[in-house]
């Protein structure tokens, strides 16, 4: 069975784009428009990984990852953001992600990050 990349991003166009690109890279994909939707509907396997946008209305990506870890279901996490500033970088580093991708990011960067994330699960 292929591992699933759980994409959480409030931007609809980004979700659609990643739901085309990620399968084309050889993985399954599931997308959520918010952290809440992820907690309500996501079906997580231990060899999956997360691709989470940092700045989202409601619960942001960092808070979502902390909450997931607190509930004992930590997954390797890739962060993504359209903000490239010092504050965002510090915020990102606080949860020790596998990688942080700055939009627009190249498919090779995404593929590298996913490979690293999946290796850390096995």
């Amino acid at each position: 069975m292929k591992p699933t990349i759980h994409v959480v991003d409030d931007d609809a166009s980004t979700r659609r784009a990643l739901s085309r690109l990620i399968p084309a890279l050889g993985f399954d994909v599931d997308t959520f428009e918010s952290a809440q939707a992820f907690f309500d509907y996501a079906k997580i396997d231990s060899d999956d990984c997360l691709l989470v946008d940092i700045h989202m209305p409601g619960m942001n990506g960092i808070e979502m990852c902390r909450k997931l870890e607190e509930s004992g279901r930590k997954l390797p996490t890739i962060l993504m953001t359209a903000h490239k500033d010092a504050g965002t970088k510090m915020l990102a580093a606080s949860i020790h992600p596998v990688a942080t991708l700055y939009k627009p990011f190249d498919e090779s960067a995404l593929l590298n990050a996913i490979s690293t994330a999946l290796q850390s699960t096995s």
Binding site: S13, T14, L21, M80, A82, K84, P104, D106
Partner: peptide, 25 residues
């Protein structure tokens, strides 16, 4: 400047992912 960058980077990110997905598809 930061909010302009964010507003532009968001669609650019989706464009790049879509274009690369389309090329593979």
């Amino acid at each position: 400047a930061a909010s302009i960058a964010h507003e532009v980077n968001q669609p650019l990110g989706a464009i790049l992912s879509n274009a690369q997905a389309a090329r593979r598809l």
